[in-house]
Amino acid sequence: MNWMKNIWRSLTTPAKHLTLGTIALSAFIMGVIFWGGFNTALEVTNTEKFCISCHEMGDNVYEELKSTVHYSNSSGVRATCPDCHVPHNWTNKIARKMQASKEVFAKLTGAIDTREKFLEKRLELASHEWARFDANGSLECKQCHSYDSMKWEDMSKLAQKQMKRAAENDQSCIDCHKGIAHHLPDMGASRAPQLIAEVGSGPRSFDNDASYYSSLTKPLYLSADTDVEAGLLNIATKVTVIDSSGERIKLHVDGWRKRIGAGRVIYFDFGINMNSAQLTMDAAKTDGVISVFEEKEDPLTGLTWERVELTIWTDADYMLADVQPLWDYAKSTYSTACSVCHTQPAEAHFDANTWPGMFQGMLAFVNFDQDTQALVQKYLQQHSSTFSDEKH
């Protein structure tokens, strides 16, 4: 321990022979050496060579980049990994480097060390990066692509219209240009990770006779212990829990159905084509599953509708006690994603039965997973002129 005491004594004893100038100069030189070493190491980690040194990146997204205009083009200007994915200003760059510790941990644990694991996590990874671009207005893109430098006359009429509107609002590039440098995730088969991250997966215990709302589209079952699906419970559907067993809950769904065929589809309200649930043919014919209370003829179509109550089981996960978080997420998603090409119509601009056709026409221009698509459509229908005082 003597050597440690000697070092400590040397560090804490005032200098007897060194001048203040010598100490200051030595400190300055040591500071320059430290800063130079730190900055050199920082810049090494800020190169494409470093990024693709891990096979997770080199074998997946880098191979995709090589087939795009950002990698090879007539002007010979290449956008490298850090050009797009590392902030250019120093403060945000350091913050991003600190966040990269998660990526180091993922490398050590083999989180995406196979192509299969990467594809499974692809939407989650892309969602994080899209959120970052949304938050900073695609600042990295705008280091090269400036609205002020664009030659509008060289664009097509449609591009001029969209880009000029984007320039007026200083719109984030990622709103329109997802998938421009890497392949898009499989949006159709995902389970809405951004939605669940915002609203949560819901409680695991339930009060009988209390109301809850499905936060995803969920399978239905005829009993608590069968694996045979009896249909689907649509997202944002109000249910009343009447029993629970293990990992499942038994519930009632109030609604209407058309008296045609087996009457497998349960609708939100009379005359409104807004699905709450749909059953298999066998489930719809099973005694005790559907109870009928009244009949009513739709004057517009001449079809007879029945007010019904569905009694069925579903998994206990992804049920919320309050529907408002779902509507908040749907409203935000509609406001951002559906304003890319034009000013989106107000929710009350159309009635509940018109919105599905209008909304389906927009889907070719956005990247929604199936649950988000169903949620936004239901949000528009339930906030349409049919149910709003602010009729168009």
Rank of each mutant, 00 (worst) to 15 (best):
P325D: 05
K378R: 07
T109A: 07
K157W: 09
Q143N: 12
H145D: 09
H342R: 05
D134N: 11
A364V: 12
K238W: 05
R248M: 06
N60S: 06
F359N: 04
R259C: 02
H128F: 11
V104E: 12
K117H: 12
W355T: 01
A337M: 12
E64P: 01
F105S: 14
T13K: 14
S127P: 00
W3H: 05
C341K: 00
G21R: 15
A262C: 01
S146C: 06
I196G: 08
M98K: 13
H17V: 14
I196Q: 08
M57E: 00
I312R: 11
Q373W: 11
C144K: 13
K5L: 15
S138V: 10
T19Y: 07
R264C: 04
H55S: 04
G200P: 00
E390K: 04
L123A: 09
N353G: 08
C173K: 03
S127E: 13
T91D: 08
D389P: 03
Q171P: 00
A224N: 14
Q171I: 00
P325F: 09
R204V: 10
N367C: 11
C144N: 13
S101N: 10
N92T: 11
V376H: 00
E309L: 01
C81L: 04
S215H: 09
T343M: 05
R165Y: 02
Q381K: 02
I7P: 03
Y221E: 00
A284F: 03
L158A: 09
A283Q: 09
Q344S: 01
P356E: 10
Y147Q: 06
S276E: 13
G261F: 04
T80C: 01
N89I: 00
E120V: 13
V292H: 14
L42N: 11
M98Q: 14
F359Y: 14
S214I: 03
Q382A: 01
F38M: 08
D322K: 03
K93Q: 09
A262F: 11
E56P: 00
A166H: 11
T240G: 09
L108P: 03
L326Q: 05
R191Q: 15
N234Y: 11
W305E: 07
A284K: 03
K66V: 06
S244M: 08
L108E: 07
A126K: 10
E63M: 04
A79S: 12
E140W: 04
K107Y: 13
A135V: 05
A352T: 02
A346Q: 06
R78T: 15
A24W: 02
A100Q: 07
I272F: 04
L125C: 13
I29C: 08
N73S: 13
L119G: 05
Y71C: 13
K164N: 10
Y318G: 08
K164G: 08
T68G: 10
P193W: 10
